[in-house]
Write a protein that binds this DNA or RNA. Structure first.
Lengths: 336, 336
DNA sequence: GTGAAAGCGCTAACAA
DNA sequence: TTGTTAGCGCTTTCAC
């Protein structure tokens, strides 16, 4: 492998017959160096396509300009989109991201944090794994924070950990949509979810129930387990409850499936039954009619997380917990 | 921020009243150090939770144990799954990944490569952006290779660049499925794609056409542009060609949409029309019937890419171009 | 305005 | 078996 190795300050200095420190200062545009020398050095540096060696700068400065990102599941469109938002904003701010995928496992999450806390990153942006939340085990978060690595959590969050958070208005979003259903006389509303282990699912359900309670209406929830076939379970549910005329889906896929199940049962959508779901744009376009969605602005969530983290990184002061709430929007497509 | 900073070799050495190099050697289990000292030092190191500083090791060794990954689009399920495979295998092999998302833009791709070629990574795994392929601009790849950063490309590849490749049997996969359609007397087969700028789409179409030609049958392709509404365009197409009794979709979403369009037009699926698509498992489960898919084994692709790269990294010898072909499988669900 | 030198944390050749 | 030292590439203080 014919290595045309990257040029170093030292080599530049030799070529230019000046000292290393002069080159360094010139390239950092220091006022200590004369205009002429600076120009000359910068020109040659560009010629040789010089870029400072990252590990060396990191070692020297103690800053890596890199963010560790731990995502529970890259195939979840919402999480993937948050990751995209993180990457983009991080790049804009001059940061790289090292990505780990916990695959919803506490073990992998711990291991990833452990691995990246060797000076590879300046801080973390993460959503805890399901496993972590289930087992209520958060010491690895607190440990790492104590070691000086700030954490920003998004989507799924955790009390008892001193870190900033970026979340959405889960409760309010379902509260509002439920009220809207009721206003349109769609009062037999079901709430369906296959992510019931997550607190966000509970919050969404609470918003829905709370709105119903205000109007003295009954709630009806369907919780689908991981191992179940969503289509089959949902079909049985709808056959058992033919009175349902509106559905709120808490997760990315159930809304679309609900439309197709309803159609297969002979319903007209949205005439006979209205369906709304937390879902991404692209999934919402797969069904006929398209799914009306509660959009979570995933990219913004990522962007906010990055800014929160960089902020923490800059001021060394141990500031208090900051929480940003990114509001959802209802995007009307065909199903409501 | 109460920094309980990570302990260094130097501090460990002071605590233990030995020299830095003794500690270093002991922790690297060098035979130069006596069993007793090693045990003692290792114990204390564990106590203090010592881990070597990454930037320092990288600077010293010239190896980062980090792979730069450039993905055109994280919301594409196939690409996301490849990324997952990469991350997993990389971790298994003791590597981290720095992820950049080119967002199908040549500019961003160049910039990402540029940024990571400052000693942040040992090599790259990437799929070129659409933009790059369209403009046929590959110097940035060749430049970086000359600088000593090996590249492994996957999915979309490029001649004129000396790098390893991991691809699928695009041509054969559609050739085979087309033959199967014909064997079952489904001879009016359409090929639909919304990723027509990519060579993989062309290869898939060629496989399909070639099989048809062998039987003297006509081909019928629908190419959908980015800006078009897939549902609308597809519906018009199917109304215009009511004779169609089989469809092959080249991309992730069109297969599912085709099922729903067919149903909405009164077809029975798969009785009246069979539909097969390159798609991911999760998307295939959204429709009724579920979509029969040509599975690309994305995770394996990622895994192979990592192994290819690490291999290149280990032997310094400039070996020839290696190409791994990961075979697709037909996963039968309801639509064929 | 420029250069010498120390040091970030680590490894490894060489000395003792 | 253990310690001393140089050096990876860079920034920065201090001396000239």
């Amino acid at each position: 492998m014919m290595k045309k190795k990257k040029i170093t300050l030292k080599e530049l200095a030799k070529n230019l017959n000046v000292s290393i420190s002069t080159v360094s200062k010139a390239l950092n545009d220091s006022h200590e160096i004369s205009k002429a020398t600076k120009r000359k050095i910068q020109k040659v540096a560009k010629q040789y396509n010089y870029t400072p060696n990252k590990p060396a700068s990191s070692l020297k400065s103690g800053k890596t300009k890199t963010i560790g990102v731990i995502i529970p599941n890259i195939l979840d469109r919402f999480l993937a989109k948050v990751l995209y938002g993180i990457e983009r904003e991080a790049n804009n701010m001059g940061y790289n991201i090292i990505t780990c995928i916990s695959n919803e496992s506490l073990e992998k999450e711990k291991q990833s944090i452990q691995l990246l806390s060797d000076g590879s990153v300046d801080g973390f942006i993460l959503a805890p794994s399901e496993d972590t939340l289930l087992k209520n085990e958060y010491e690895h978060f607190n440990d790492i924070i104590k070691q000086g690595y700030p954490i920003v959590m998004f989507d799924r969050t955790v009390t008892d950990v001193l870190c900033d958070e970026v979340i959405i208005n889960n409760f309010v979003s379902t509260f509002d949509i439920t009220k809207e259903f009721i206003a349109q006389k769609k009062c037999k509303i079901a709430f369906i979810s296959s992510i019931t282990e997550l607190k966000i699912s509970k919050l969404r359900e609470d918003g829905y129930k709370s709105a119903l309670a205000k109007h003295g209406l009954d709630s009806l929830s369907l919780k689908i387990k991981k191992e179940e076939d969503k289509q089959v379970t949902l079909k049985l549910f709808m056959e058992k409850h033919p009175e349902i005329n509106a559905i709120i889906s808490a997760d990315d896929t159930l809304g679309t499936i609900a439309i197709n199940v309803a159609l297969s049962l002979g319903y007209k959508v949205p005439k006979d039954i209205s369906i709304v779901g937390f879902a991404s744009e692209s999934v919402s376009n797969l069904s006929i009619p398209k799914l009306t969605i509660i959009k979570q602005h995933a990219k913004d969530i990522g962007k906010n997380a990055v800014n929160l983290l960089i902020n923490k990184l800059q001021k060394e002061t141990s500031s208090k917990k900051e929480v940003i709430i990114v509001k959802t929007s209802l995007i009307r497509k065909g199903s409501f």
